[in-house]
Design a binder for these strands. Structure first.
Length: 601
RNA sequence: GGGAUUGUAGCUCAACUGGACAGAGCGACGGUUUCCUAAACCGUAGGUUCCGGGUUCGAUUCCCGGCAGUCCCA
């Protein structure tokens, strides 16, 4: 029985017939207040016209005692301050909870999403362009939310809503035919497409307007289904997706579908027609708009004065199709905070059109570079590829320097390389990419970020590598103790990256928490499932990242100050058991953030 | 002009949705490796939580009014 349920039952017994659904037991804010606390007696003092301490005392009197009910988890219950309930749990209860947690799959993450379906829409880069640092946030935050919801048992459809339609394709098609060399056309790549766009767009600005008109004509042909232009467009998209997938592979990101804006071209007119029939959309200055003044959301255009559609239209068409095809419980959109009004507008319209799925916008703050917006004009579009290469380079330098300390003689034998000789490369990627992801995930998404190399690639303190290092040390410890098992060839050809999901290593013997630092770590480990749930409810991977960092700190402190392998047998086994549980929690948690956990660093 | 969002230590950020003395990392200063991985650990210094009201037993958190940054709409 959960502690919250026990306390709630005591409240109900003390004050029958009242609603105590709000009662919660939380971890104590400080060890001197016990292990857990409940502050809800204070809230009732006014209602019952009683001194809050008396309310608390009455509740305490209704708690089960160990004599009557063997289930009592409390070693001590105190009423403190104005009426706080400070709860100290018994060692037996704590050990039993640890045993339960240890036995559960996924480290006790509740399967509250079983049977429910959700769609997550994230990353969504524009075709024919390389991904840059501005794309990190949606990709990394979206993927972590994706993984977190999957871990809770939800069926998740991850959709990449590519920017694959629009005026740029007229410019690209015209440029491709007339400005690229034959060799460039034969070896078409995203960089060539970028070059093509820049050249063609420049010509489109020429005074006479001839090139511009010609681009427009190509666009119209494309929109009308001209086979040649359509084939060319398809080629551009395929090349773009291949390039994106190269980045996603590095980041460990996978999508179920890649439905760009173009996917909804055919259904947009129908959506607009229905909006008109429902009386929601009306003509205004040549455009068709939905007036949302009543909701204080301004006016949303659904068809521009030139007859073209915009994001509101395509988002509405898209949501209708998703509802029809998947019937999801909710749809989550991970985009930057500038689009908040846009999402509020069309969520509102979708509701009026009968969409009942819960629509959630997860906004994240803008990324800037040295205080300036990231844009082509500012020339600060650092390519994602470049960032990842730098991340790898920096961690590789550290990896190698650790293997060859001052003096040039290796203190520890260099770790055996893989057959292809890329052992350190793979390690540097796990660490470098992990650092980049963690930097983003450890902050509340809404925070604006001013990009800097040093921040993005932090390797010390509250950083990805700190957590990976803690994991590597616990693996090493368990290996030395003989309780560590390498994953059964699951790490797919790379024995040094034991990051395959589901693998566990178990300590031997039972839990036996004794010292204060063990107890603090143990109590913290029990909070893991709750941290995952909170992260999901708030759509903030940072909640989980923060939990994992705190947990690793408690572990590092415990590890540094308590001998484990050198302790006598019973203490050693109990501590190893706790270490193994920590290792599982850390690995599972980092896995939810999309961060690899090498067994050796 | 209307709206969104942010404002916490020198810097970057937390604070479990209203709880006890506001915590971490970086940076600064000092300590810890014949000992399980020093990407670590331990300690010291550092705060008018932007300002002013209000609600509450209790406010970084909620409400009102300002100020400042960023963004969106017109």
């Amino acid at each position: 029985m959960e502690l919250t349920d026990i306390i709630k039952a005591a409240f109900e017994k003390a004050y029958p017939g009242e609603d105590f659904s709000f009662v919660r037991v939380l971890p104590a804010t400080d060890p001197k207040f016990g292990d857990y606390q409940c502050n809800d007696a204070l809230k009732l003092s006014k209602k019952f016209r009683a001194n809050p301490r008396e309310v608390a005392a009455k509740v305490v009197a209704c708690l089960p005692t160990s004599d009557v009910d063997v289930a009592s988890p409390f070693a001590k219950v105190e009423i403190a301050g104005p009426g706080f309930l400070n709860l100290t749990v018994s060692t037996d209860w704590l050990n039993a909870q640890l045993t339960t947690l240890n036995a559960q799959s996924k480290c006790g993450i509740p399967q509250s999403g079983a049977g429910k379906k959700i769609v997550i829409d994230y990353s969504s880069p524009n075709a024919a362009k390389q991904m840059h640092i501005g794309h990190i946030r949606s990709t990394v935050i979206g993927n972590a939310i994706d993984r977190i919801f999957r871990s809770l048992g939800y069926e998740v459809i991850a959709d990449n809503h590519l920017g694959d339609w629009g005026t740029q394709f007229g410019i690209l098609i015209k440029g491709y035919r007339e400005l690229l060399t034959q060799e460039e056309r034969d070896n078409l790549s995203v960089p060539y497409l970028e070059k093509c766009y820049v050249l063609s767009a420049a010509k489109a600005k020429e005074e006479d307007g001839v090139w511009k008109e010609s681009c427009k004509a190509e666009l119209v042909k494309l929109q009308q289904g001209d086979p040649d232009n359509l084939a060319l467009w398809r080629k551009f998209i395929d090349i773009s997706i291949a390039e994106f997938n190269r980045m996603y592979a590095k980041l460990g990101v996978k999508f179920d579908t890649y439905r760009g804006e173009s996917y909804y071209n055919d259904t947009m007119p129908g959506v607009v027609k229905r909006l008109q029939e429902m009386g929601l959309a009306v003509e205004s200055e040549g455009a068709l708009v939905v007036n949302l003044e009543e909701e204080k959301l301004g006016v949303a255009i659904v068809r521009k004065s030139d007859g073209g559609f915009n994001y509101t239209t395509s988002d509405l068409a898209c949501v209708e199709m998703r509802v029809k095809e998947y019937d999801p419980e909710r749809i989550i959109y991970v985009t930057d905070a500038r689009q908040q009004l846009h999402f509020k507008q069309w969520f509102n319209i979708a509701g009026k059109m009968g969409v009942t799925a819960k629509l959630v916008h997860v906004p994240f703050g803008l990324m800037s570079f040295q205080g300036k917006a990231i844009s082509t004009r500012e020339g600060n579009l650092i390519k994602l590829d470049e960032l990842l290469a730098e991340a790898k380079k920096r961690s590789l330098a550290i990896v190698e320097s650790r293997q060859q300390p001052a003096g040039g003689v290796a203190v520890t034998a260099p770790v055996a390389e893989d057959s292809d000789g890329t052992g350190n490369d793979a390690l540097a990627e796990a660490i470098g990419y992990g650092a980049v992801k963690y930097t983003d995930l450890s902050h509340d998404p809404i925070t604006d970020i001013d990009f800097s190399w040093d921040k993005a690639l932090a390797l010390e303190g509250n950083s990805g590598p700190y957590l990976q290092y803690a994991y590597a040390r616990v693996c090493s410890l368990l290996e030395k103790a003989g309780t560590y098992r390498e994953p059964p060839s699951a790490a797919a050809g790379n024995s040094r990256l034991a990051s395959a999901a589901g693998e566990t290593h178990r300590g031997t013997g039972a839990f036996a928490v004794t010292t204060p630092s063990e107890k603090r770590l143990a109590l913290q480990l029990l909070e893991f499932p709750g941290a995952v749930v909170r992260a999901a409810e708030a759509y903030k991977p940072s909640v989980l990242a923060d939990y994992l960092f705190q947990t690793a700190q408690l572990y590092s402190s415990f590890y540094q100050n308590s001998p484990i392998l050198k302790s006598e047998e019973s203490v050693k086994n109990a501590r190893l058991h706790l270490c193994a549980l920590f290792g599982n929690v850390l690995k599972t948690g980092l896995g939810l953030l999309g961060i690899e956990t090498p067994a050796h660093i």
